[in-house]
Nucleic acid binder design. Structure first.
Length: 532
DNA sequence: AACCTGTCGTCCA
DNA sequence: CGACAGGTT
């Protein structure tokens, strides 16, 4: 919900703006807003016909905005939401329930043949899933658009980037629809940006430095301002009936101290302050100040602003509500879009080539009993078994999994190893599953330098992409999405004898020599060469 | 006067 | 998500 009426309250400090103002600069994008709007155009398809082109319309919608920014020489930095915060689970559960209800009605109407009515319900059931975000991420990668998946709230991540110099990966402004960004104290936010680049800009400094004493936020510090937002009601805390943004402002500007405001409220007979309010208030304050964010430089999680002792007295050292800590490797995988931020499991996605796993060799070793997939890179070889009933899709999913594991340098998590000799036989695999994945290039302004560009609207990029099924309340996911990049550029080589191949369990040290022998001897029967 | 609750629109052609 | 309308405190 953001903070109710906060945007209207800040109206005096909001002015029309065009994104070209930020030409030559980096601007953060709250991915959720455009994803959600975009999903509106295809809510029915996302659920009922997820494999059709129409179901991908939200990607086109999003890319239109990206191309708009690029046209004006604005560098987009797309930030996605990550895992749920415990203190937000209440409101989140509520929304989920509503969506589910609408989804049931939608399907009912759909099967009755009432598409119009169904569409309405589908739109109310729209939900952006990690899977959908992941679809977009892959396009962003191909288009070399910078992006980041926040460990938890995208808002907090954007606020952090706002506090950074551009040279250190920071951003000069944020494009969003969510008023929460104001509570985080972000200096420059663009709301309601339309498809031409026009929006409404809030420059927070203008609110704090009007130059006129006694007006608006003159003399208030950021912490009081954030406190005002929480009093007015935010997702992280329970709210007091009868207190909106107006009264919150009056209280804060009158007492200029949050402790005092809270004790005054408790005494005031007009309001009923829940027993737990003070606790939840300070927790919310801690979220706005110290939410867990991902630091690109150190590749690890850290608080938005350094934790100070002043809050500890209220919080009694309990910081679990800032979200559970995760190992840095996982945090990195989430931030870079390889791991689902909620389940913490790898998407079936091949890591970005630039991050490693270049020139990986893919081999399928086939025995009468079982099959083995080996992915080797330089002197490392990673192997996992798969059953003979496996489809090509299964194998690819496995390959992606291995590549993720390689990427994450986590060599202990794979399945069985090859431990005994096996008879190998040549297996023939064909790869007819490629479909063209169309990268939206619907920028009306941009002149693309495309070889042989026929003025068409789409740039075709060959990606093999099968069964892109979405996972959501709106979209039922019957199977994990399976994607793989450019498997069609493989060469089939034949190999002779095979030997036992062991998974290299040394992440460090022995990389140089351990599998050299196996590389030469491994029996392959089919060897694919990946061109990345 | 300010707050609350409920309803509607976000997309697209 | 926000915006808005109309009823309530």
């Amino acid at each position: 919900m953001g903070i109710p009426n906060l945007l209207r309250f800040m109206k005096p400090f909001i002015q029309p703006v065009h994104v070209k103002k930020y030409s030559g600069q980096r601007v953060g994008v709250d991915a959720y807003s455009w994803l959600h709007k975009g999903a509106y155009s295809c809510s029915l398809e996302l659920c009922m016909r997820p494999k059709t082109e129409a179901a991908k319309r939200y990607l086109n919608y999003f890319m239109h905005y990206i191309n708009l920014l690029r046209h004006y020489n604005v560098t987009p930095v797309v930030v996605f939401d990550g895992g749920y915060l415990p203190c937000k689970s209440g409101t989140e559960a509520e929304r989920h329930k509503r969506r589910e209800e609408n989804l049931v009605l939608a399907k009912q109407k759909f099967h009755e043949g009432d598409v119009a009515a169904a569409t309405e319900y589908f739109q109310k059931a729209v939900h952006i899933t990690p899977c959908m975000a992941h679809q977009l991420i892959q396009i962003l990668r191909l288009e070399s658009i910078e992006f980041l998946v926040a460990p938890y709230e995208a808002d907090a991540q954007l606020a952090y980037l706002s506090s950074l110099e551009e040279e250190r990966g920071g951003i000069s402004a944020i494009i969003t629809e969510d008023s929460d960004l104001i509570a985080y104290g972000c200096p420059s936010i663009i709301f309601k940006m339309d498809r031409h680049g026009n929006g409404e800009e809030l420059l927070l400094d203008k609110a704090f430095n009007t130059g006129i004493k006694g007006l608006a936020f003159e003399g208030l510090d950021k912490n009081l301002f954030t406190g005002m937002c929480i009093l007015a009601g935010c997702d992280f805390s329970t709210s007091i009936q009868g207190i909106g943004v107006r009264r919150a402002y009056s209280l804060v500007s009158k007492y200029k101290n949050l402790d005092r405001v809270l004790s005054v409220l408790k005494v005031d007979k007009r309001y009923t302050v829940p027993e737990t309010y003070e606790d939840s208030f300070y927790k919310a304050l801690a979220v706005f100040n110290h939410a867990t964010i991902y630091d690109v430089e150190t590749e690890s999680l850290k608080p938005l602003k350094p934790l100070e002792d002043e809050h500890m007295q209220h919080l009694k050292g309990d910081l679990s509500f800032l979200g559970p800590d995760v190992p840095s490797v996982v945090a990195k995988g989430i931030a870079e879009g390889f791991y689902d931020p909620i389940t913490k499991k790898a998407f079936n996605l091949m890591p970005s080539p630039r991050k490693g796993i270049k020139n990986a060799k893919i081999s399928i070793l086939k025995s009468t009993k079982e099959n083995y997939l080996q992915v080797s890179q330089n002197d490392d070889a990673y192997i996992s078994v798969f059953s003979s009933e496996s489809t090509m899709q299964d194998v690819r999913a496995l390959e992606d999994e291995i590549r993720n594991e390689m990427y994450m340098k986590d060599t202990c998590a794979l399945g069985k190893l090859i431990s005994e000799e096996s008879d190998h036989e040549v297996s023939e695999t064909t790869d007819k599953n490629e479909i063209d994945m169309s990268i939206p290039d619907n920028n009306p302004f941009k002149k693309r330098k495309l070889e042989g560009c026929n003025g068409g609207n789409m740039k075709k990029t060959t990606i093999s992409m099968q069964d892109v099924s979405m996972q959501s309340g709106v979209v039922n996911c019957t199977q994990a999405s399976q994607e793989s990049v450019d498997l069609n550029s493989r060469e089939i080589l034949s190999n002779s004898k095979s030997k036992n191949v062991k998974k290299d369990e040394n992440t460090k040290g022995s990389r140089g020599k351990s599998n050299k022998k196996n590389q030469d001897e491994k029996g392959g029967i089919l060897k694919f060469f990946m061109r990345l």
